[in-house]
Amino acid sequence: MKTDTVERALDVSAQSAPGPRRGPGALRRNLWSYLFLVPTVLLFGGFTLWPMVASWWYSFFNWDGVGNPTDWVGLANFREVLGADAFWRAFWHSFAFSLAAIFIEMPLALVLAILLNNSWLRFRNLYRLVLFLPVVATTAVIGIVIAILLDPAGGLVNRVLLDTGLVDRPVNFLGGTSTALPTLLSIDVWKGFGITLIYWLAALQTVPKDLQEAAAIDGAGFWRALRFVTLPVVTPIAIVILLLVFQRSLNTFDLVQAVTEGGPDYATDVVPTYIYRYAFDPSLRAPRYGFASAAGVVFGLLTLAITLLQAPFMKRRMTRSAS
């Protein structure tokens, strides 16, 4: 259908003389093109570029969001953020979500991707579907469902643990200061696992079939083929996956806000919930937009610094895919 139209169009243009490529028509088309770009410039400029700039601007003010920012305080907000133990605690928790995603989720997803990539494995599409299912569920909703399952007073998990005698008294998974963060990290790995799995499967698809066959003919076993054929092909893509997984996990907000709101006693507080609390918490009498913006800017800079550590790899990958 589609190629049909294209072919017919090609026919038509072949019969008629090609029109002039430049001239007043081209100028008018350029004007139209700019008109077509206006919505993007407005929407992207207003909701992506402007906020990036404005965050910096706001962070120099002591401002509660009423009226325009007028109370210039210089670097005071930044000094306060950098000196706040609570901010650094939140930052390390955010970072913990990244570490869990990079060192637990990514390797496990790779192992399962290698397994599910085998065409001889029956039901592999069904397995993939099941593992992917948590990804499409709204984080806030399914997170609360799991919070109920983990409830110390009658929650299913504790009931099973008690019945089987694995524990003597209920574990307060999300209510204990030492267990809450590991529990949320586990839920986050469960929730994001499917995306990373799809990334790896896409990466494995790029390994040329004839290369694998050649390795098999040469008598390379599973491990040798993995080491000398699969991994070298997959490595450059792995760096992109690393970056995607890193960015996603570092910005974890929905799960924490919905399930623990950063508690108990800030044991699961992450930077986004920290910022949210200072800017939007309904129980707050006066929001601190300036301070919260400064926290956001510092967080952005720290993320940028960590991302830049991966830049040399990215650059190599970019130049390679460009050529």
Binding site: P51, A54, Y58, V271, S293, A295, G296, V298, G300, L301
Partner: peptide, 11 residues
């Protein structure tokens, strides 16, 4: 990385 841009967006 955008840091957190929700405040200017909200404003």
């Amino acid at each position: 990385p955008h840091g957190y841009t929700i405040i200017p967006t909200f404003v």
